[in-house]
């Protein structure tokens, strides 16, 4: 596994608060726009979906691919980001 990105470290380092969805690792402007269109404009909404799916990696990645057409890497980065954040703060 490669090293973590700065975006990931920044997100996991503190409570997410009202951070935008683009603050999540693996979510850029493009995917952020699609997520916002789908109603997931904040990071905590994505976190909510992640929790609704019971932290199921498979389901969450599928959901990411479904909603914003994320790639496997992007979905994986976002999942890892949320998962580690939850382990830290939840």
């Amino acid at each position: 596994m490669s090293g973590t990105s700065q975006k990931y470290r920044n997100f996991v380092a503190e409570p997410m608060g009202n951070k935008a969805v683009t603050e999540l690792a693996g979510i850029g402007e493009t995917l952020g726009g699609r997520l916002t269109e789908a109603g997931f404009d904040k990071a905590y909404t994505v976190l909510g979906q992640y929790l609704v799916l019971k932290k199921d990696e498979e389901l969450f990645k599928d959901w990411m691919k479904e909603v914003c057409h994320a790639s496997s890497k992007q979905a994986s980065d976002c999942y890892n980001c949320l998962n580690d954040w939850c382990e830290e703060f939840l």
Binding site: G39, Q49, V52, L53, D56, E58, L59, D62, W63, E66
Partner: peptide
């Protein structure tokens, strides 16, 4: 697994269920 079905997660769960009913898709993975 007992996952709440919402509008946002419905599609994903339907896919998973369909795969499961199909007999070979990844219910174990789910």
């Amino acid at each position: 697994p007992n996952i709440p079905v919402t509008d946002s997660s419905r599609k994903v769960l339907v896919k998973r269920l369909r795969a499961s009913i199909g007999g070979q898709a990844s219910p174990a993975a789910a």
